[in-house]
């Protein structure tokens, strides 16, 4: 077993253990109204943080680049109530155009 195999197997085993543990917490732990409320709010926080990190950062630094333009176009599309594929496509096209030509 070399480093690469240990990393491959170790990462995979723990990744699945974490996923399964989430599915194994007793349901009644989640029935309290406060837990229900937090449960609904957590996806908003996590998804928003994901959007922020994937748009404005590179490794451990803030970086403003073509992605900001792409995601800005996505925001405009959403404000104009565009369907999901248009939101994603318009963002990709904008970002690729700026990346390739500037």
């Amino acid at each position: 077993m070399n480093t690469f195999w240990i990393a491959t197997i170790g990462t995979s085993v723990i990744a699945f253990a974490l996923k399964l543990s989430g599915h194994s917490i007793p349901a009644h732990w989640l029935e309290h109204p406060i837990v229900q409320r937090i449960n609904a709010l957590i996806p908003i926080a996590l998804l928003s943080a994901l959007v922020g990190v994937q748009t404005f950062t590179e490794k451990n630094e803030i970086l403003i680049d073509h992605r900001v333009a792409g995601v800005s176009v996505a925001v405009i599309s959403l404000l104009l109530k565009a369907p999901f594929p248009i939101v994603v496509l318009s963002s990709a096209i904008t970002s690729a155009a700026i990346y390739n030509w500037f």
């Binding site: 959007v51 994937q54 792409g70 959403l78 994603v88 096209i93 904008t94 970002s95």
Partner: peptide
């Protein structure tokens, strides 16, 4: 990045959180 994938992914997440 030349294909805009690095913007498409956060745009997709944004499109999913928006209606919430």
């Amino acid at each position: 990045r030349a294909w805009g994938l690095d913007s498409a992914v956060p745009a997709a997440f944004l499109g999913l959180v928006w209606p919430r």
